[in-house]
């Protein structure tokens, strides 16, 4: 069984690989999702072919608008809630056709499916869980931008607490979303899949690349949760995405970790954990939290981030 050891990372050589996501798609200017997709696909070895799956969402409606497909590899979009099951079928067909000698021996395919948080945490959760449990040799990548962005920024179970969304608007009687977010990476790790990891964009993309490479080249069902900020929904300047990601990591709002064959590993520990306000302040969706009367909400947010961070540290210390 392949353990999917991460390849040595060299930005220059990785960027010299042919681009597998063509320009000309209709994602918004500054979109995080396609930055994430490009980074994941760069982890594919040049000689390997791929079939890409996609749940309905921004990425799907923008990347394959007939007759324009941005995908250089084979691609299948089916519906919103079934990216896991759909790619299960593709991967099973691969095994069936190989077994029956109907595909050339020399050709190798990898299977990667992308879903937004709505299609992954919520409506596609059952299909994802089924695919992970059955152990198809595939990678499910959640591009988590924390709301239903395609339909106009409605809350999902990935939306952070207190976020102002179109179905949890902040107002006279509301401070935004009431609940904290679901911890999907941990839930999928608890399926005891060979590899599950949480990542986002760092300066040279080492963390994302390493994890994508492990996920793609580890046999079995693997899961990546990639935080991909959305400038429209989060309301920050499009140019600031890398700083937003840095703050998510440095405040421990979005810790970088992996669960590799059952072993919980922290990928990064901030030297000085920043207060959560640093992550929240640049984003319009949290503007209401900075009114003087809402100071206690910031404290609650901080408390939850701390609790989860400690919990994660504990799990990783146990190995």
């Amino acid at each position: 069984m392949s353990t999917g050891a991460a390849e040595n990372y060299n930005l220059k050589s990785m960027l010299s690989r042919p681009e597998r996501l063509a320009p000309g798609h209709r994602m918004c200017a500054g979109c995080g999702a396609t930055i994430g997709v490009r980074a994941v696909l760069r982890a594919l070895h040049e000689e390997d072919r791929a079939v890409i799956g996609n749940a309905t969402g921004c990425l799907e409606v923008s990347s394959y608008m007939y007759p324009y497909t941005a995908w250089e590899d084979s691609y299948i979009h089916n519906a919103f809630e079934n990216a896991g099951a759909t790619l299960s079928g593709v991967e099973t067909a691969y095994r069936a056709l190989r077994k029956r000698g109907r595909l050339p021996e020399s050709e190798h395919f990898k299977f990667i499916t992308f879903g937004g948080d709505g299609g992954t945490y919520d409506i596609g959760f059952q299909s994802l869980s089924g695919a992970m449990e059955r152990g198809h040799d595939m990678v499910y990548v959640c591009y988590d931008n924390g709301a239903y962005m395609n339909t106009g920024i409605q809350r999902s179970s990935a939306t952070p607490m207190f976020a102002d969304t179109t179905t949890t608007p902040a107002g006279k009687c509301s401070a935004g979303k009431v609940q904290y977010r679901k911890d999907l990476t941990a839930i999928i790790a608890e399926h005891h899949v060979p590899y599950a990891a949480q990542t986002t964009f760092t300066r040279d993309f080492t963390d994302l690349h390493r994890k994508a490479s492990k996920a793609i080249y580890t046999e079995g069902a693997c899961f990546l949760n990639v935080m991909t900020p959305c400038p429209r929904g989060w309301r920050y300047e499009t140019s600031e995405i890398m700083e937003i990601c840095r703050l998510a990591v440095e405040t421990c709002y979005w810790p970088l970790f992996e669960v590799d064959h059952g072993k919980w590993i922290l990928s990064y520990t901030p030297k000085n954990k920043l207060p959560i306000e640093d992550f929240l302040r640049p984003q319009g969706r949290f503007k209401h939290l900075f009114k003087p009367e809402n100071e206690h909400l910031l404290a609650l947010f901080q408390e939850e981030v701390d609790r989860r961070w400690e919990d994660l540290q504990y799990r990783c210390a146990q190995g």
Binding site: E19, P23, T238, I241, M242
Partner: peptide, 25 residues
């Protein structure tokens, strides 16, 4: 986000202005 900075022989090329959306990242 728009694959608009091509890399050739280890060096970045000119911006692909046919596709760049001007996000400024």
């Amino acid at each position: 986000p728009d694959s608009s900075i091509p890399v050739l022989e280890g060096k970045r090329g000119a911006f692909d202005y046919d596709h760049c959306k001007g996000c400024g990242i």
